[in-house]
Design a protein around this nucleic acid. Structure first.
Length: 195
DNA sequence: TGACCGATGAAT
DNA sequence: TTCATCGGTCAT
């Protein structure tokens, strides 16, 4: 069952935590490719120096961040990688949750093909890796997650006790916000990016 | 029009 | 630890 619109309207950090254990599903050429979400990061909008909408920035690249909760925000980084985010809240609050890692669940043979390798633990343990494994690219930017190309299904409920919170990855430039505990992952999962 | 740099990954 | 790689952003 798909996560409902109201799920995405909760507070962003809460959505980030509640996404752990849910299943991200990509339908590509009629095939389901899916994984259990094991690691996320919350980006808190105009007041968060690490967020792309910081200070109200509203450029063509970040326009999807201003869609209502329940849409995809996919952007291109480092000249070669894509990252997938779930937009949260309302269109007046450009916030999102970055999906950083998955545990492969369905369509693993396709993930192996798209990633060019078969090491299960290296298929989807990183924001750009999972995009490659699930064929998520620029074309997915702005997609409605309540439709059928890419969406999130209810999976397992992860006990709060099993959720670890740390500072976010790759945002050292963000001053104080670099230390905010907005990265969440399933404590004992082997499918989490390191660093 | 151009310089700068990044929410990374893979190889070393 | 190093570097490949190039679109988006913002200053001219």
């Amino acid at each position: 069952m798909k996560l409902s619109h109201s799920f995405y309207e909760q507070k962003t950090a809460l959505v980030a935590k509640n996404l752990l254990g849910q299943k991200l599903v990509r339908v590509y050429r009629g095939k389901r490719i899916a994984g259990i979400i094991t690691e996320t990061e919350a980006y808190l909008g105009v007041d968060d120096p690490a967020c792309h909408s910081f200070g109200g920035r509203h450029t063509p690249r970040v326009k999807s961040l201003y869609l209502p909760g329940g849409h995809a925000y996919v952007y291109f980084v480092y000249g070669m990688h894509f990252c997938f985010n779930v937009v949260t809240g309302t269109s007046h609050h450009p916030e999102a949750v970055l999906i950083r890692s998955l545990e492969p669940a369905e369509g693993i043979e396709w993930m192996e093909k798209f990633r060019g390798q078969t090491n299960r633990k290296n298929l989807t343990t990183g924001p750009a890796k999972l995009c490659e494994a699930l064929k998520i690219d620029r074309k997915c930017d702005g997609k409605n997650l309540l439709k059928n190309e890419i969406f999130i299904e209810r999976g397992l409920t992860v006990s709060t006790k099993k959720i670890a919170a740390t500072s976010r990855v790759g945002v050292a430039y963000a001053g104080k916000a670099a230390h905010w505990p907005l990265r969440f992952y399933i404590q004992d999962s082997e499918y989490v990016s390191k660093r």
